[in-house]
Amino acid sequence: MYKPAVIAKNSFKELLRKKGLQVLLVFGLILIGSSRLFSFLTPGEEMKMIKDVGLSTIEFFGALIVIFGAIGALSSEVEKKTLYTLLAKPLKRRDFVLGKFLGLSLATLLNFLLMAIFFIGLLLFKEHTVSSGIFKALILILFELFLIAAIALAVSTFASPAFTMIFSLFLYLVGHLIGYGHSLMEQTESALLKAAGTLFYRIIPNFENFNIRDKVAVDIFVRWNYLVKTIGYSLIYIAVALLIGIYFFQKREI
């Protein structure tokens, strides 16, 4: 059996048992369901709000679940010293990191599907059809979540759980603003600031790329080739994050 798959299977099992993640999932589902409270609005407005709330909840709670999951994936093995036994076996550290990422992605996918199916069910119940735009927005959210998983996991290979959490949440925020930050920096006179701005812009992932939900909620059409590009973008960034994770984990003293 492919070694990362062995690790993935085990860490998937472990993630499913995490109480905190289950609670987050339930909160997410409640929030998606609560968007029906807007029924005092006209039907068009109500649908828009259900879509906004649903998609945003799936993204935000998905991100929280992923970040907490990533922190637990490594730190629990370190704290409980299971890592100690595991790495004494013929297992490359690279395969361990890859396996953890795969397990985390699998758990992410499951959480995502639960929320997405509930959300789509709600839309079908209200409107009887779901536009392709909704599916496109959901797909991009999923790949954004995979990317967040890879980043949080990479950070957790060299940082404490608390730092990982703060850093990942911060990066999530900054990643949504980096586009604006860059265009602001472009206008400064200082060459140094400009260079720094460009550098950050090149390194920090631009999470706004994945954000089309504000557009599909008002029925703007998004082409499939945009999805292909953005998914490619997320896969390359995942590779970068995993390489960083593997590098630091290889050096780590256990």
Partner: peptide
Amino acid sequence: KKDIGFLPENPYYY
């Protein structure tokens, strides 16, 4: 490591 068996102190497993 294929040929090594290791038992840590106070083993703790999943």
